[in-house]
Design a protein around this nucleic acid. Structure first.
Length: 926
RNA sequence: GCCCGAGUGGCGGAAUUGGUAGACGCGUCGGUCUCAAAAACCGAUGAGGUAACACUCGUGCCGGUUCGAUCCCGGCCUCGGGUACCA
């Protein structure tokens, strides 16, 4: 029988499904191993060849761990809420649930064809009420919790109320956006409304008026990580700043833990770096500046308190609350005008002219806490409302933005730091600010001559003793805005009583997404849920917003542990057994969104005693992107004539994407091209050598670029085992690479060859019981060792080579011994599960190969008696000499020097030095 | 601009991190089998050089450390990713 991959793969797909071969049990004496893929959003385009890269890699690991005797949890599900289905619903009126269902079905068909060993009984879909019940439940827990900075963990809001009732705000250190202080008495005298509004500023899920990224075209608010360069990540629609009342999650409370936790995660430096930058920790000082003729103070955050004597002006952001109070009468009109202009600029506009300096003087002066000098207070949009205190002390000599501002408005520039190795200079000659982390202070009163690193603590101590400041840490990380003005998401389990929000009792969950007559905002501009009939709880209106796309993915890995539990998110026992994800495979594009949110969500569940591990993922691997290879045709402008690639420069042409299915090896099938589009029926071609050659470019793989390679086609032509091995053979999984099918034949040939190892020339199954010879044992054992090492470090491309080498060597040895071929079959099974199941059955086994024992390599077959030493002269390899491995250095030296080849290079000279590294190299210095 | 990562044959990549550069595969060329083709198998394949050896040069560029550098250090160039007035 020939290698008939179609029959074999179909047979084993059915077998695995019928026998639930990969069902993972929550009770097992085996050690656990949890392998997780980032679950996909089921888009209408289906899977392309890029998706399986990560799925195959993790599947190989999961299958390997099963062979190694682990109880492996390897689940899959769907991130099913999201914008595309809803946009489609708006266009067609089709309910997003229907579209989503169709897409999921297609995804499942495609995934099934790849031989992935998922436990499908644990499938979750974020859009199902039984699932999002727990997303809503978790929201309620967040709402009922606050964060204690002292304990560095979440505590119940009732504990906070307790504290308020006994001691007020005295001695509390909580994560909050409230600056209010009060005594227990004052607390008790507050109205319900006042109390609720204060508590809101402490909750981990809270409602507040905040500047949001508003996307008018999508009709919704977006989180920071959903906006890139002033446009939405999905759809590329423009985004503006807008003040809105929104739910947010207080992820900032966890900033320090999210940062520290990175040390314990096994992942790439780039992933850590991206997260570190996003969290953006900076140490500095909080300092209050008195204001002339005003009882208020101007609060600033600075990372360089040592430069405080160089302050020549203060700057407030346009949103700063003190602007109204501080602005003098004669400056009012101008300031109002500026503030109004600055606030109404959209994000894109602002980012476009970062270089342009703009600002306005308020007429007010702050008082320098040490020199008592009067410092003008300005308003400028280069100071951001969201960071620090929204106000800065400007030190133009040592900050490039302050410098540009000072130059533009002719403000004084005072040097206070002299960089090491430089001298005090006249600042009027400077062309830019002097960055000066290493230097000493001048013009700085009591810190003169101190180096920067000594001056900083000196100033912090001083302001602290004066009670006008303290050392502190600031983060760039913002709280996550959690409301979306969309339909296709989880409804908030929240109702409003006299405008005060209350969460639903837990036994009312899930709050099921209602039907609406259209998926559009109402005429009043309210979100789609406002269209739902009876969208109330006990007569009170329910929240019209829904949760964002990332809500459902925050803890899906925990739900997989116990996916059918309707009493709890997941049981304690299931969580105690599976603990957390051992290996998480997915794209690097989720580094700032999903990975940060889910780590935060998990830490919260850990704090409230639900999850038993602080970090959800032990090891994260980011697979690279598979890029598309687009083809182009060149149409002569204003005609219906297309000119071949190498001739196009003689004409004026437009490059047009052409469907890669019409192109083979960059040669266009012109007939097919004519048939494809009505407008191309009469197309004329200018050929070269009788062919139309297309141009190409490497781009993102996308439907719109006509460069999508579908895995189904490959499976149809070569089978899933070939596709699996080929995708791994392309190179290291973390690396991005363009998809190119040239080379796939080599892998297909290998599998055919592997099949032939177990068959005679006449294609009948043939495996002998004879005892293998030493060379055969040696080939097997060195292969086991190499494959095991490769899998452990996920270097699958080299594993594939190893299998090729092994097969070639066994072919040369004409090996047909069962003692060799049986373990080899197990070894290959994580990579090519179908063919190996078939051979395993032929070898006489009745159980699936998936749980066979991984072979163990033995040292005795790998021992080499001699080593082929490369002999170098002055570091240049000249000849190879075989010497016993146990030979002493002295003897080696003698043998090497007496070798005939050596004479030529010595030319009668005595060697100066001889370096011998056993089992590595011999180097002779002449 | 700032912060990461990467540059190796015609191509994908290997060399498990200081020790024989180019494994394995693709492609190309030549051969066997065949009436022919496909499939399969065998051989060659970094560049220069030679009849063939020999030899010389070669891991983005320049320099350094070392007996020895794709690997370590310093400077530059190119590409990919992150970020964007973060005080």
């Amino acid at each position: 029988m020939e290698y008939n991959f179609k029959e074999i793969e179909e047979k084993w797909r059915r077998y695995w499904a019928a026998n639930k071969s990969f069902k993972a049990d929550n009770n097992s004496s085996k050690p656990k191993y949890y392998v997780l893929d980032m679950f996909p959003y089921p888009s209408g385009a289906g899977l392309h060849v890029g998706h399986p890269l990560g799925y195959i890699a993790s599947d190989i690991y999961a299958r390997y761990k099963r062979l190694k005797g682990f109880n492996v949890l390897h689940p899959m599900g769907y991130d099913a809420f999201g914008l595309p289905a809803e946009q489609y619903a708006i266009e067609t009126g089709q309910h997003p649930a229907v579209t989503t269902e169709i897409n999921i079905k297609r995804y499942r068909e495609q995934l099934d064809k790849l031989g992935l060993s998922f436990d499908w009984d644990r499938e979750v879909r974020t859009c199902e009420p039984a699932y999002y019940k727990w997303t809503q439940w978790c929201f309620i827990q967040l709402y009922n919790s606050c964060y204690c900075n002292q304990a560095q963990k979440a505590i119940s809001i009732s504990e906070l109320i307790n504290a308020f009732e006994t001691t007020g705000t005295e001695g509390l250190d909580m994560a909050t956006n409230s600056k209010l202080t009060f005594t227990a008495e004052e607390w008790k005298n507050k109205s319900e409304e006042e109390q609720q509004s204060i508590l809101m500023d402490y909750r981990l899920a809270y409602l507040s008026d905040c500047m949001v990224n508003w996307c008018p075209k999508l009709g919704t608010v977006l989180a920071n990580d959903e906006v890139v360069n002033g446009s939405s990540v999905r759809g590329g629609c423009p985004v503006e700043r807008k003040l809105m009342r929104q739910w947010s999650l207080r992820i900032t409370a966890y900033a320090e833990r999210l940062l520290k936790g990175l040390e314990h995660i096994d992942c790439s430096d780039s992933l850590k770096e991206i997260q570190r930058n996003w969290i953006g920790r900076s140490e500095g000082a909080f300092i209050q500046f008195p204001i002339q003729n005003n009882s208020q103070t101007l609060d600033v955050f600075t990372t360089r308190p040592d430069t405080i004597f160089g302050v020549s002006f203060m700057v407030l952001c346009p949103e700063h609350p003190l602007i109204k109070q501080l602005t003098t009468l004669e400056r009012k009109e101008e300031v109002d005008k500026y503030v109004c202009w600055a606030k109404n600029r959209c994000e894109r506009e602002r980012m476009a002219d970062v270089k342009k300096v703009s600002g306005v003087f308020t007429g007010a002066y702050a008082v320098h806490p040490f020199s008592k000098e009067h410092i003008p207070v300005w308003v400028a949009d280069y100071v951001l409302a969201g960071y620090g205190t929204g106000a800065i002390m400007a030190v133009p000599a040592h900050d490039s933005r302050d410098f540009a501002f000072a130059r533009h408005f002719n403000l004084p520039i005072v040097q206070v730091i002299v960089p090491n190795g430089e001298k005090h200079e006249d600042t009027s000659t400077w062309e830019e600010a002097k960055d000066s982390k290493d230097g000493y202070c001048i013009n700085s009163d009591f810190i003169n001559n101190l180096p920067v690193n000594k001056a900083i603590p000196e100033i912090i101590a001083k302001v602290k003793s004066m009670n006008i400041g303290y050392g502190t840490v600031n983060y760039r990380l913002r709280d996550a805005i959690f409301s979306r003005q969309r339909y296709w998401g989880e409804p908030f389990p929240v109702y409003f009583k006299e405008c005060i929000p209350y969460v639903l009792p837990e036994n009312e969950l899930p709050l099921v997404l209602p039907e609406v007559d259209a998926y559009l905002p109402t005429e009043l501009g309210e979100p789609p849920l406002a269209r739902a009939k009876n969208w109330t709880y006990k007569g009170f209106p329910l929240d019209y917003n829904t949760m964002p796309g990332f809500a459902g993915s925050n803890a899906y890995y925990l739900r997989y542990m116990d996916p059918h539990n309707d009493q709890a998110y997941f049981s304690k026992e299931a969580n105690q057994y599976w603990r957390n994800v051992d290996l998480y495979v997915g794209g690097l594009e989720h580094a700032t969104g999903h990975l940060l949110y889910s780590r935060f969500w998990n830490k919260f569940l850990y704090d409230i005693g639900l999850a038993c591990e602080d970090e959800p993922f032990q090891k994260i691997v980011n697979q690279g992107m598979i890029q598309g290879r687009s083809n182009f045709v060149y149409r002569i402008i204003g005609t219906n004539t297309y000119v071949s690639y190498h001739l196009k420069d003689s004409y004026e042409t437009d490059a047009i994407h052409v469907d890669i299915n019409l192109v083979d090896n960059d040669v266009l099938d012109t007939d097919a091209f004519r048939k494809r589009h009505k407008s191309c029926e009469a197309a004329e071609f200018i050929l070269e050598d009788g062919k139309y050659i297309c141009g190409y470019e490497i781009e993102k793989m996308s439907k719109s670029l006509y460069n999508v390679q579908n895995p189904d086609d490959i499976v149809e032509k070569y089978g899933a085992d070939t596709l699996r091995m080929y995708e791994m053979f392309l190179g290291p999984i973390e690396q991005s690479k363009p998809w190119d099918t040239k080379g796939i034949e080599g892998v297909f040939r290998f599998l055919k060859k592997f099949w032939r190892l177990y068959h005679t020339a006449e294609n009948t199954f043939n495996v002998s019981e004879h005892e293998p010879v030493f060379d055969e044992w040696k080939v097997l054992h060195k292969t086991i060792k190499k494959i095991e090492e490769d899998i452990e470090r996920m270097s699958y491309n080299t594993s594939v080579s190893t299998f090729m080498i092994c097969t070639n060597e066994l072919m040369d040895l004409k090996c047909d011994k069962k003692a060799i071929l049986e373990p080899l079959c197990i070894l290959l099974s994580p990579f090519a599960p179908h063919i190996t199941e078939e051979l395993w059955e032929m070898l006489g086994h009745t159980e699936s190969i998936s749980y066979a024992p991984f072979p163990i390599w033995e040292e005795k077959y790998l021992i080499e008696n001699t080593y082929n030493y490369p002999v170098s002269f002055n570091g240049k390899m000249r000849f190879v000499m075989s010497l016993p491995v146990d030979m002493s250095k002295e003897e080696m030296e003698k043998s090497v020097l007496s070798a005939p080849e050596a004479q030529k290079w010595l030319q009668g000279n005595q060697p100066k030095k001889i370096i011998i590294v056993p089992k590595k190299i011999v180097n002779i210095v002449v």
